[in-house]
Every structure is written in structure tokens, then in C-alpha cells.
């Protein structure tokens, strides 16, 4: 058994010094992904223990924060798969079409008010539910980019996928999120729009729109299968073709 002094002179102390500054960031993402503090704490602890165990595999000079996030992402996926939850079924083309209809009708009104009171009045619970309605792989990319501030390249490293895939998921994830937020704004009568809700949210979810969501429930799954549905669970089936400046990104983002 090692004494505390011995520990301080060995790898453990170095690890602690290097890893502890990232607790808040890791916890924040863990909390958003697991949706409750207890699971988030467990996920962060499991991440730290794994990272410590494999600390000698970490390559000096590479991004330590991204390495920790990568371990947490893998741990999250493993735990998620153990629960054998059904992946989301989404129809992105339908989401995009309805988004276009809403935004075209409302863009002029939405920008009239400089303080955007429409959105300020929205409840925190609605914002959380909008985020939670995203398939996990899109949600994680949006969190890593828009909340944690990782670059596309760092996210690609964390998720083990091409930069183009990150951009594709970001594009879709952000659009879905905006679509759902606009849907809430419409429900409360702040903006005009069609009656049909975003496809990615279930009928069950629609029925209890104003009811508080219980942690751990999966009521944002869509039940009905359709021909052009896309099953999403940390998949790489991306098909967007965006024109990008960076040649490497251009190549990777044009994945079929």
C-alpha cells in the first residue's frame, strides 16, 4: 500500500494536478447528457478512474481535456448501450422543411425586438427539453461546440469521427434545436407557424407538453417508422455536402 507521500511523488499526483481543473467542464456535459446529478457524478468518477488507469497512454503534447472528454464519451456510450435503449428515429428532411416554413413566416417579426423577449420568456424547462429531444450524438456535438467551445477538430478527436461528420451533426443538431425552440415559441403564441410539431418529438411528448419530465424517461422517441427515417445513435451516416474552405474538411464533409 502506498502512503499519501508516495502517492504525491508518483503518477497519481501528476494526474490529479492535470485532471482536476476539468471537473466542472466534464460534469457540465455529463449532467446535460445524463440529465441528473447523480448519474453525472458517477459518469465523471468513472471517467477519472479510467483516465488515471490509462494515464500512461496519454501522449504528452496532445489535448488532455479532449482526451478526458473522449474517455467520458466512450463511458457514456457503453453505459447507454447497457440500458439497451431504443435509438431515436428522426426524419431530418421533414424537420428542415417545417423549419423553413416557420422561419420564413416569422423571421421579420423575430428580429424586430432587439432584446428577443420571445425567447427570454421561454421557460428553462422548455430549453432543457429542447436539448434533450436531440438524438444523443447530435446533442453531444452541440454541447461540445456551443457550450464547451471545442473546435471541430477537437470534437472529431473526442468522437473518433471525421471533421465532416462533426460539421454535419452540428448542422443538423443546431437546426433541430432551433426548430424545437421555435415550436415552443409558436405553442405559446409568440410566433405564427403550422400546427404540426417537429417530427423528432413523440406524440406522447406532445400530450404532456407542459408536464415536468421525469429523469431517465425516454419520451422523446418517435414511434412510427417511415421510409426515409434515419436511425441515430452515434452513427456516421452523414450525407450533407457543404462547400468548405479547408480542403481536408471539404473532403471529409462530402461523405456520402
Amino acid at each position: 500500500m502506498k502512503s499519501a507521500q508516495a502517492y504525491e511523488h508518483e503518477q497519481g499526483w501528476d494526474f490529479e494536478k492535470a485532471a482536476m481543473p476539468y471537473v466542472d467542464s466534464l460534469y457540465n456535459t455529463a449532467y446535460r447528457m445524463t440529465r441528473n446529478s447523480e448519474d453525472a457524478e458517477d459518469l465523471v468518477q468513472e471517467t477519472y478512474l479510467k483516465a488515471y488507469k490509462y494515464y500512461d497512454k496519454f501522449e504528452e503534447g496532445t489535448n488532455f481535456k479532449a482526451w478526458l472528454f473522449k474517455i467520458m464519451k466512450n463511458t457514456f456510450i457503453n453505459n447507454y448501450r447497457k440500458k439497451k435503449l431504443t435509438p431515436h428515429k428522426i426524419d431530418f428532411s421533414e424537420i428542415e422543411e417545417s423549419y423553413e416554413r416557420v422561419i420564413q413566416k416569422n423571421a421579420p417579426d423575430l428580429i424586430k425586438d432587439p432584446e428577443s423577449e420571445i425567447f427570454q420568456d421561454m421557460m428553462d424547462e422548455d430549453v432543457k427539453r429542447a436539448l434533450d429531444s436531440l438524438p444523443h450524438d447530435y446533442k453531444m456535438v452541440v454541447l461540445l461546440a456551443d457550450i464547451e467551445g471545442f473546435s471541430y477538430k477537437e470534437i472529431a478527436e473526442i468522437l473518433d469521427c471525421p471533421v465532416g461528420t462533426v460539421m454535419s451533426r452540428l448542422y443538423r443538431g443546431r437546426k433541430m434545436l432551433e426548430r424545437t425552440l421555435l415550436d415552443y415559441a409558436r405553442k405559446y403564441g409568440y410566433i405564427r407557424g403550422e400546427a404540426e410539431p417537429a417530427k423528432m418529438r413523440s406524440r406522447k411528448d406532445e400530450d404532456k407538453t407542459r408536464r415536468k419530465k421525469e429523469p431517465g424517461t425516454e419520451d422523446d422517441e418517435v414511434q412510427e417508422p417511415e421510409e426515409n427515417e434515419e436511425e441515430v445513435l452515434f452513427s456516421d451516416d452523414e450525407d450533407l455536402e457543404l462547400e468548405l474552405d479547408d480542403e481536408e474538411q471539404q473532403e471529409e464533409f462530402s461523405v456520402e
Binding site: R32, V44, D124, L131, D146, I147, L181
Partner: peptide, 11 residues
Amino acid sequence: FFRKRLGPVSA
């Protein structure tokens, strides 16, 4: 709006 509302949750 999204960033503001989903700002960091401290451990």
C-alpha cells in the same frame, strides 16, 4: 439564448 440558458453547471 441557448448558451445563456444552458450555461455551465458547476460540479
